[in-house]
Design a protein around this nucleic acid. Structure first.
Lengths: 156, 156
DNA sequence: TTATGAAACTTCAAGCTTGAAATAATTTGC
DNA sequence: GCAAATTATTTCAAGCTTGAAGTTTCATAA
């Protein structure tokens, strides 16, 4: 949607529609800024950062399907991103004995070090970009977002 | 980012980081659902819907660069989407006498009719997907999102 | 067994997205 | 007037994204 400021329609449901538009514009703006900084400062991309962030939380590794589910993207998508991270030496696939269809994906030593540096910058960027949301307000907003997420998530 | 529930880190700035993660997950989930429905029910895509929504609000038409700025996407991106909408007969480019570099882009008659139908469905989907946010809560959330948007938007 | 079905991935075509380079038209400064 | 800078747009290569189709492996059960 990303509809805008001018007409300001009213009627039943318009407040929710407006909320959605703001939500989308906010996340797109911030995403664009993060994307740009990741490219400029670390020569990487948001999808790669996302995958590394997921793997960083899982030292034992994750299956491709775990990654796909966690990141809310398709299976085929993850394949490509992991391929690129592997070719950069940041991530490794480990064939498993138990089930030869699957492979555990994890950060390499280098991947882990690299991610730690990027993540620190990332967190400070978020602090900056959301600078005029107080920590208290942040907590309240987070709670509200949770409440509507639980409504329908995991349905499709 | 889209980091997740498990570790729940704490420290300075963590509340903002958590807010960002929730924000992103919420908008991605809803976006994915809208995308799916647009495809299934109307055989179209979110980017096309976005462009049509922008043009619907501007009967006199918009320049490519207006569209690009308004939708927060690159120039080259808009070119491709408009090309496809033109080939579907939903949008038209009109060369201008004044400045021959530019062209006014607007919805065709058919595009306008088509969009009205899709937009009605879209609005009801939003009502459904954000169903357990009260209208009142929606207004408050919208206000909060505004406040942090104004902080840094239009900087880059 | 062994076929039949399900599960985990990968591949593929089409479309979206970006940033950079190329084109074309207009504006500015001399 | 005219070269130089600016503006509006398109083109391009690379990467992201999806849904569908294809592969390989595993699980089930007749």
């Amino acid at each position: 949607m990303v509809a805008g400021p001018l007409p300001t329609p009213s009627g039943p449901g318009k407040d929710r529609l407006r909320l959605w538009v703001r939500l989308l514009r906010a996340s797109r703006s911030i995403e664009a800024e993060l994307r740009e900084r990741l490219r400029q400062e670390f020569n990487t991309t948001l999808p790669r950062f996302d995958v590394m962030a997921a793997l960083y939380r899982a030292p034992e590794g994750m299956l491709m399907s775990d990654l796909s589910r966690f990141l809310l993207v398709s299976n085929g998508n993850v394949t490509g991103i992991v391929d690129r991270l592997v070719s950069e030496g940041l991530v490794a696939r480990a064939r498993r004995n138990g089930d030869r269809r699957t492979s555990m994906v994890r950060l390499t030593e280098e991947g882990s070090k690299t991610f730690a540096v990027i993540a620190a910058a990332h967190e400070s960027w978020i602090g900056e970009l959301l600078g005029n949301v107080s920590e208290d307000e942040a907590r309240r907003l987070t709670g509200m977002l949770n409440s509507f997420r639980s409504n329908w998530e995991g349905r499709e």
